[in-house]
Design a binder for these strands. Structure first.
Length: 571
RNA sequence: CGGGGUGUGGCGCAGCCUGGCAGCGCACUUGCUUUGGGAGCAAGGAGUCGGAGGUUCAAAUCCUCUCACCCCGACCA
């Protein structure tokens, strides 16, 4: 492709609206332009990248035995109401009404659609296992779109769905998809990490995310991974070993009410009482679908609301407002405690069970109780609700410490079970003649997000460094001075030769100054650049430059194409 | 949804406080020169100052309302 015949609007300056490197580069390299919040045009270079990524995805999905289909973007509300996700997704879902005022949905995922699609027609155990996928635009009405394609309201995804007769079949399908995902992301050039994750609104029995690890600020999720074994989990899901601390060997003391005027935070109370925050137990009040629940957690820990929400099996979970706190505890916010708290479910983190002589709120203004022990109150349920932290001990090998990484989620896989086949009535007849719901799985890859993740993972201060498998072009030829007939001829000869060898080639035929072309080349990040200029031609040579390392090799004009192809092979 | 910020030519910004000719850099067009890391000179085109209402002799500037976008938080299949 000739630069002058395509559209690559590069920017010299950083766009004002971009914060993270990959977002700035998406805009500066002329890959995308925003239409409205969270919605982007994909310009010619980006289109090439997306096609290369989707091609890899297609090849590996097909190789795994999955069958490609295309499902509608526009869905009737009815199927979402049937599965119960109309309420679960709520405002996350892009919704509209048609002229008849019927509710419609712009799909964020397609479990409901595919389940309706096969219902009544896929009906024998002989027809499965079946895996169908599509590459399709998706919508999510993000409360706050940001970071370019990382958190958009419209994006492209590959989503696949499997149908099996039982859990064992699902496990096979699930592992097969995980395997395909490793192949896909490795081909895209990533070091990928598969981590355990929460199932969220998807529902089901288990899930994993595929994360690209980045050391920049561009990561959007924190993951914890054991430094000794293979354990790795999203922060929402990560657990750690409960360590009984030193104080648990103390002799139990008599509890006592203490006056703590205006001391509401953990810091204030422990500072005032001259004890560490690990000697205090926070009692946090939540409204779980209207019911008030108390969550107890050690003072120096953070609560993991996802874990609490999962334990309570509620749709909405939020901190109780002050008036409810007052009603339940009889005190202002900041003095809630488990002793004498009635009519409220008390959920405690297991770590609490290891503690002695701790501080709790007294359910009375300006008062706490010291030397509290487990016998002093009743715990209704014990459930891990604390956020695991870096440095804690791995729950799997019980030895290694957990380390935190910043990651970008580019893929996820879910074991759905029969949630959707039950709700939408997709059943088959087994060998014994019994009617049973399909056991399903669902598997996503964010195509547009993967492109941005590549930029985040592979760039330097001058621009993008595309992995060769997903680069918009393989070679970038720069005639230093396009007005010079010899340079022009050599450049275009090379352009044709490389194309004849099957490569995707971009030639910068603009009448621009060399500096402009070099800077744009560095910015858009084609893996190999070939400079054709007076300096080299004097010796009958052109320069082959590797973008990643900026290594330069001179090659004779007549051997340039074959030499460039060799370098490509080993890149 | 709470808090903060920004809307001025395609992009990046100044001007606003203290009302008085709408500016700068880059980009764009034309000409000449220049051509190995973002050229020089000259000439030129391009802006309802996000929108509506108000105050005033006069509003980019002050007031009210509103819309959009960005950031922090909440949220996040």
């Amino acid at each position: 492709m000739r630069w002058t015949k395509t559209y690559i609007p590069t920017l010299r300056e950083d766009p004002a609206d971009a914060v993270i490197d990959s977002h700035k580069l998406l805009l500066r390299a002329g890959l995308v332009r925003q239409l409205t919040a969270g919605v982007y045009n994909y310009l010619p270079l980006m289109q090439k990248v997306l096609l290369k990524i989707t091609q890899i995805v297609r090849e590996e999905m097909d190789a795994s035995g999955a069958i490609e289909v295309t499902m509608p973007v526009l869905h009737p509300a009815e199927i979402w109401q049937k599965s119960g996700r109309w309420e679960v997704l709520g405002k996350e879902q892009m919704r509209m009404k048609d002229r008849h005022l019927r509710d419609l949905v712009l799909g964020a995922t397609h479990e409901e659609v595919i389940t309706s699609m096969v219902r009544g027609e896929l009906k024998s155990y002989r027809q499965v296992p079946l895996n169908m996928y599509q590459i399709q635009v998706k919508f999510r009405d993000e409360p706050r779109p940001r970071f370019g394609l990382m958190r958009g309201r419209e994006f492209i995804m590959k989503d696949a769905y499997t149908f099996d007769v039982d859990e064992a079949g699902l496990k096979v399908a699930y592992d097969k998809m995980a395997d395909a995902y490793f192949k896909i992301f490795n081909r895209c050039g990533f070091q990928i990490k598969m981590v355990e994750s929460d199932v969220g609104a998807m529902g089901g029995t288990g899930a994993h995310e595929f994360m690209v690890l980045v050391d920049t600020a561009g990561g959007e999720e924190v993951i914890l991974a054991c430094e000794r074994c293979e354990y790795a989990a999203n922060i929402e899901r990560a657990t750690s070993l409960v360590m009984s601390d030193e104080s648990s060997r103390e002799a139990k003391k008599e509890k006592a009410l203490v006056y703590t005027p205006n001391m509401k935070t953990v810091e204030e109370v422990t500072g005032f009482l001259k004890v560490g925050p690990e000697k205090l137990v926070k009692t946090l009040l939540y409204q779980a679908d209207g019911e008030t629940v108390a969550a107890m957690i050690r003072g120096d820990r953070d609560i993991n609301e996802v874990k609490l929400k999962n334990h309570l099996r509620c749709l909405e979970l939020e901190m109780s407002p002050p008036d409810i706190v007052m009603k339940v505890t009889g005190a202002l916010v900041g003095y809630a405690g488990p002793i004498g708290l009635s009519g409220v479910r008390i959920v405690a983190d297991p770590e609490i069970k290891t503690m002695v002589n701790f501080v709790v709120g007294a359910n009375k203004d300006d008062s706490h109780i010291i030397n509290t022990n487990l016998e002093d109150f009743k715990i209704d349920e014990v459930c891990e609700i604390r956020k695991a932290e870096a440095g804690e001990i791995c729950p799997r090998c019980n030895q290694g410490r957990l380390k935190a990484y910043s990651g970008i989620e580019v893929g996820n896989i879910f074991m759905l079970g029969t949630k959707y086949s039950d709700a939408l009535d997709a059943k088959f007849v087994d060998a014994e003649g019994n009617e049973r719901p399909f056991v399903m799985g669902s598997y996503g890859i964010g195509i547009t997000r993967t492109a941005q993740a590549a930029i985040e993972a592979f760039h330097d201060e001058k621009g993008i460094i595309w992995p060769k498998t997903i680069a918009p072009y393989d070679f970038h030829i720069i005639p230093i001075n396009i007005e010079d007939e010899q340079q022009k001829k050599v450049s275009f000869d090379l352009y044709e030769q490389l194309q004849n060898l099957g490569f995707d080639v971009l030639i910068d035929d603009r009448d621009e100054r060399p500096g402009v072309k070099f800077n744009d080349a560095d910015l858009i990040g084609i893996p190999i650049r070939i400079s054709v200029g007076e300096r080299g031609l004097k010796e009958g040579a052109v320069e082959i430059v590797i973008r990643r390392t900026m290594e330069v090799e001179k090659a004779p004009v007549e051997k340039a194409a074959s030499r460039a192809a060799e370098i490509w092979e080993i890149l």
